[in-house]
């Protein structure tokens, strides 16, 4: 039997559906608890509905990015495994590297050489073994870190809000800086001009995203336009993406 038809067989679809459904099940369980707690704590139905809608709208763009990254995995390890790996503990970059490490240990270069049975097994096992570390440590440590944070903040709400707000700013300044500064150090290191040009475009997209969001948020805030506030993020990333692609 051809190896790619094994990789895309109904049996593999079933095996991969188990962990994928489990991820959704976990999300549903947490959603139910959080909604119950929210009602108990005095959050209005309106607030929770707004939260759900806003999150759904925000998910769509990044989901499509992941989907387009999934293409290469679908071709190399088959649709079911690619689907499962990106729905669970997944990130496109990590999965492709892990799959490549697995196959290269048995002498198959992922994406160039034809897939063999041995290499497929290696890719699947390596992706799984290399990804569970995150879940094991996160699951083990979550409640412990919660206790540490409570101790640091000593139950002071202002301190807790400060920690969380600063952490968010920290995460996104890190993500932005990684795109903004890349062309600069690539120039300093005399990288390939084509590579540097690509980095400048990412840098531009990041700047445009920030500027457009600033304008839209300010306008929406000053004029009190509710729908603009809600759609500002979606409009921003679409416009920034299109302008960058056209330049």
């Amino acid at each position: 039997m051809d190896i790619m038809s094994i990789a895309n067989s109904p049996a593999m679809w079933i095996a991969c559906a188990i962990p994928v459904c489990f991820v959704v099940l976990q999300a549903v369980l947490f959603l139910r608890e959080a909604r119950k707690a929210g009602a108990e704590m005095g959050l209005t139905n309106e607030q929770m509905k707004n939260a759900m809608r806003s999150s759904a709208v925000t998910s769509i763009g990044p989901s499509i990015v992941v989907l387009s990254g999934m293409l290469s995995l679908l071709v190399t390890v088959g649709a079911p495994v690619g689907w499962m790996r990106l729905s669970m503990i997944g990130s496109v970059m990590f999965e492709s590297i892990a799959a490549g490490l697995g196959t290269s240990a048995v002498g198959v270069t992922l994406g160039t050489d034809p897939m063999t049975a041995e290499a497929l097994g290696m890719a699947v096992w390596t992706m799984i073994l290399c990804s569970i570390g995150w879940v094991i440590f996160a699951t083990f440590s979550a409640n412990k870190m919660d206790k540490i944070e409570a101790k640091v903040a000593k139950g002071n709400t202002a301190t807790m809000t400060m920690i969380a707000s600063c952490a968010i700013i920290g995460v996104f300044s890190a993500m932005c800086a990684s795109h903004l500064i890349k062309p600069v150090y690539q120039l300093a290191l005399a990288a390939d001009p084509a590579v540097v040009a690509g980095s400048w475009k990412n840098c531009l997209a990041c700047v445009l995203g920030a500027v457009i969001m600033y304008v839209l948020n300010t306008v929406a805030g000053k004029k009190g336009i509710g729908w603009l506030k809600e759609w500002a993020l979606t409009i921003t990333i679409l416009v920034a993406m299109i302008i960058t692609a056209l330049i």
């Binding site: 959704v24 959603l31 959050l43 607030q47 929770m48 759904a56 989907l67």
Partner: peptide, 30 residues
């Protein structure tokens, strides 16, 4: 969207709701 502050109990419950929805949407798209 829910007008809650990060780091508060309400904020944490809302973040959990948001994250759960994003997982459901993301898995559906994939």
């Amino acid at each position: 969207a829910a007008d809650t502050k990060p780091g508060t109990e309400e904020g944490s419950v809302i973040a959990t709701i948001g994250m759960a929805i994003s997982i459901i949407i993301n898995v559906s798209v994939l």
